[in-house]
Nucleic acid binder design. Sequence first.
DNA 1: ATAGTTCCGGATAGGAAATGTCCGAGTATT
DNA 2: AATACTCGGACATTTCCTATCCGGAACTAT
Lengths: 158, 158
Amino acid sequence: MSGGVEWALHCCVVLTSVREPVPAARLAELHDVSPTYLAKQLQALSRAGLVHSTQGKSGGYALTRSPELITVLEVVDAVDGPSAAFVCTEIRQRGPMATPAEACTTPCAISRAMATAEAARREALRTITIADLANDVESDYGAGALNGIGAWLRTTGA
Amino acid sequence: MSGGVEWALHCCVVLTSVREPVPAARLAELHDVSPTYLAKQLQALSRAGLVHSTQGKSGGYALTRSPELITVLEVVDAVDGPSAAFVCTEIRQRGPMATPAEACTTPCAISRAMATAEAARREALRTITIADLANDVESDYGAGALNGIGAWLRTTGA
DNA sequence: ATAGTTCCGGATAGGAAATGTCCGAGTATT
DNA sequence: AATACTCGGACATTTCCTATCCGGAACTAT
């Protein structure tokens, strides 16, 4: 899995603590990561419609919906792309004992097994929302932790 | 996910139809894939103890246990390695708002969410055995399909 | 209107990981 | 013992991810 997913999820969580747009450079400074590369992940989130971007002075990124309505799966798909982890090469149709193409109407047994496992993972990611993550952070580090970060995000850059 | 997993699983399934060792080159010919690269995957299976290798003339690979006792998860771990798909960079400990290291006794909320999803996928793979896959193949292409492949594997190379 | 700030997309290196290939070590057969 | 055949690990090649930079468009505040 792409490493940018972690950055994107952290950004979504901290964005729950502010309502005004936050520039990508400021989010990168908060997490101490590459500003240009983080910008690319945020663009992916924008294309997927998860965050809204406003240009110009005092612009930046903000969540489009309530955190309860954004699932972790949506963020993962937006950044990593919706391509499945396992891709069937259809090697059953190759070699001297190849099964004829007309008998391959359904995916092979191995492909089905992988699809089942992948569906289980995606279902688990679908049940977790950004609001759940933000709630867990408050539980871990004390209530108001996200508010502190929100206050820092609102202040103009150092 | 590595593409070699597909090859390894197909090899395990067809190996259920023979009891004598089958050379890696013959398995590669059956699937029409790179012989040397497939050998690498089979070596990984051997290191994991899923298949037993015998050298010398009339040598090759054979399953060590009954197909019911080999899970798909074991094959995936053997080929792709047991490394998790998601690796937490601990970016919560970086930047101006970093959380102190002494407060990071447990994994962060995002890491926990990913671990849950990954566990669901692994659990799904654990419940499927090589015997299940072989059974599905017989259901798909008719009983005796694997026996035909087994007979071809036993014949000396073309 | 002008200037300054911000997002957006593509083009471009660098590096890690997967893919693919080769030759030596070892063993059963002859 | 000689031989032929096999596995095993070390060696190139290619692909993809990571990371960067630049030009352009759009928006806000002055």
